[in-house]
């Protein structure tokens, strides 16, 4: 239960908003639930709803709307390559293709070990450092800029090792 494991975090999140506006806490709480459960399962969704007095449906609506929430299983690590116009003008598409080829998966798929998913995303505000991607892991999102397939693969290998240990 989130309420027990993250009592302090939840309190800190709720404290950010006026006491009669608990609903505002739903987005940070969803990140917290995603950190705990990896995927936002129905149980995770209803737990978040209970914390702030929302119906599960209301919470699920947000999960569906925002792209950084995941209610369908994917890799523990999500490599989200920006292939939007500015990055594509600077080789992002070729980079993405090469990465998928090296991992032997298609765009959007997860490696057979269940560790890494490669996804295409829209502009990440790092267009001057294309090709780039962000790594979304259970507890955070980090930018990796000026990438090549080689540098990305090195990171992925390191993650796989880490992922197996954790």
């Amino acid at each position: 239960m989130l309420a027990e494991i993250y009592t302090q975090e939840i309190e800190a999140i709720l404290a950010k908003y006026p006491s009669d506006q608990k609903r505002s806490a739903v987005m940070p709480l969803l990140f917290l639930a995603q950190r705990e459960y990896g995927t936002l399962t129905n149980e995770a969704i209803s737990e978040v709803g209970e914390l702030i007095g929302l119906q599960s449906t209301e919470v699920a609506s947000l999960v569906g709307f925002y792209t950084l929430y995941h209610d369908r299983p994917g890799g523990k690590y999500r490599i989200q390559v920006c292939t939007d116009l500015p990055c594509s003008l600077r080789g992002a598409q070729a980079f993405a293709d090469e990465l998928c080829e090296k991992l032997d998966i298609r765009m959007g798929e997860t490696t057979p070990d269940g560790q890494v998913t490669v996804e295409e995303v829209k502009c990440l505000a790092a267009c001057d450092h294309a090709p780039m991607f962000q790594l979304q892991e259970p507890n955070g999102i980090h930018y990796y800029e000026d990438q090549s397939a080689g540098s990305a693969m090195a990171l992925i290998e390191a993650l796989r090792v880490k992922g197996q240990v954790d």
């Binding site: 506006q21 609903r23 505002s24 806490a25 739903v26 987005m27 969803l30 990140f31 702030i52 929302l54 947000l62 709307f65 925002y66 792209t67 950084l68 929430y69 995303v121 829209k122 502009c123």
Partner: peptide
């Protein structure tokens, strides 16, 4: 936020901030 360009539009942003 959690991944939605439209939340840059100020009223959508406020909706989002309200959860």
């Amino acid at each position: 936020g959690a991944g939605a360009y439209i939340c840059g539009e100020e009223t959508a942003l406020l909706e989002s901030l309200e959860g």
